[in-house]
Design a protein around this nucleic acid. Sequence first.
DNA 1: CTGAAAGCGCTTACAG
DNA 2: CTGAAAGCGCTTACAG
Lengths: 353, 353
Amino acid sequence: MSVTVRVKSSGEPRLRATSYDVARLAGVSQSTVSRAFLANAPISAQLREKVMGAARQLSFRPNAAARSLTTSRSHVVAFFVPNIGNPLYPFVLETFSRHLRALDHQILLLPLVESADEALAWLIQYQVESLVITAASPLGLSKEIAHKCLKARIPVVLFNRYFPDVRAASVNCDNARGGAVAAETLWAAGHNRFAFIGGAEATSTHADRRDGFVDRLRELGAPAPLIETTAFSYAGGYAAGLKLLGRRSRPDAVFCANDLIALGVLDAARHGHGLKVPNNLSIIGFDDAPMAAWAGYELTTVRLPVEAMVACAVKMLLSGAEERHRRAEVVLIPGDLVLRGSSRVLASVMKPT
Amino acid sequence: MSVTVRVKSSGEPRLRATSYDVARLAGVSQSTVSRAFLANAPISAQLREKVMGAARQLSFRPNAAARSLTTSRSHVVAFFVPNIGNPLYPFVLETFSRHLRALDHQILLLPLVESADEALAWLIQYQVESLVITAASPLGLSKEIAHKCLKARIPVVLFNRYFPDVRAASVNCDNARGGAVAAETLWAAGHNRFAFIGGAEATSTHADRRDGFVDRLRELGAPAPLIETTAFSYAGGYAAGLKLLGRRSRPDAVFCANDLIALGVLDAARHGHGLKVPNNLSIIGFDDAPMAAWAGYELTTVRLPVEAMVACAVKMLLSGAEERHRRAEVVLIPGDLVLRGSSRVLASVMKPT
DNA sequence: CTGAAAGCGCTTACAG
DNA sequence: CTGAAAGCGCTTACAG
């Protein structure tokens, strides 16, 4: 005997309707109700309509847990977003949400875990189909999680991150190219005392942006830049900027591993050392966080192509489920330079011959 | 016959283990396996240990979908976060994540929906136990969603938002008190041409912050402030600031409905009108977003007590599940003023007699 | 196209 | 405390 839907006088169902309730109301079998909610099921338009009418009356929707149990598919993608401090990531998450909605997949947030094993247990418990990791967490946890997931046959997509020794799919901005463009831009503007201020050493974003910058400067015949490392944060950038710009021969062109750092450096230059930007110092960041466009900063930066990166990640996510034995792919998507006021444009403009 | 766990040569399970697999390996009944994973189930320490050992070998965790089906409890809380542009909300979400993890509840992100009915259908499909709404969306969608959820007996907690005509539980910063403190602070500093720049008129944050400010100024015998309305964003604040500060008799003290607006006004003052802050103009915001503390802004603001608000919201969430007939509660939690450089402190300091 | 029935992986009375 | 069995609400061969 199945549960009866009791209806209060006010008309709200007290218990949630099941497909049996809908079947009874529509005068069809339960299987037919089930088919009415399946896109390509064999069912006549007539019956489907009858079912849908009854379903509407009862506010019925197929129970996702039951569906997951029978199909062994949860349609759940978990997200591990340790870099919540980066103002770009809310937009990244929102973009993923939009893309995944179109494919009827849901976003479950991975809670803060203490170990990769705990994360894996959680992923298994919630029948997560795949995992998106948006950053390297300080303790190398995300790398370990990625590794264990792959071993457990849970597809992983790394967003703007990769690990040379973990064969997970990965979508990245072409960070090295972005660094190279920054180098070209600063060199063309007539600068000659360069610096790079990076974030956590172990991250691919740090390393690739730095290498792209350093290598291109060398190719151009420019002097080698100073290299400074700090936290991927405003406070980190401020501290590093304060220190770097206090040197005897201070740099006149700084490329930072992300916007948060660049904004900190910019404020350290202005408020800590009384420098003019870009007159005394050009600064270029990376990401194009919303604040980069603010009138108080006008930060020249390399824009992270979020939309294209997410579209690519989602494609990998879903294909990964089927061809999970495919080689791990690392995709690079070019990011455009956004020229704003924090960097000088032309050497000839600033230093007329 | 139940599914056998096949093990590859490399040792990774190909199919996920079930409680039957664990039972077989541990030499106990399947019910015992189930009990081993339940906190207060009747089971001897000895058997539990044996089960746990087998479970570890097979990387077994109880399937949440199956559990949800038998218990009719999903332990899933859905989040509707339309105000993703506010840099405070990533932290709000992170704080919720931390609090809910302790209670073993999961966070599922509500996708962008087109109607309240669509949202409700989604909530039913995913067996969501309760919904947290963190803001009013432009089209009044969140209000409608809150209303329909309550009718469908899905507990709703509004975060920093309430609707006079929807009896949902709600946790708020004491916005009116915050506005009053801003008024007191600016009046004590010797200002006398006040303005309030708000966001969407229909939101309680806008209305309460404005009313607290306006009312307290009246009580103090101060002149009534100009009232300006714009979008809850940096661009909105910048535009409003540009306009307001171009007036013949421009205000010398502005209180903004949130930090994003305040930061926009501040930049409009400095870069659009060449004004000095706080010499020519004091500005106070609301929220204490990370940027408010940046050296480029030093924004005086009322700090949203996120930790306390989230703790309270989580308590409501879980009690709401049981005492859903309780009166809708609107909790106010005081937020402290954070004095920084964007507001003058004392009249006597600035205008010595 | 339609319906009756088995089964997904759990929890929980029920009996011992 | 322990086990055998029913049942949660679906999907999907299977038979017609």
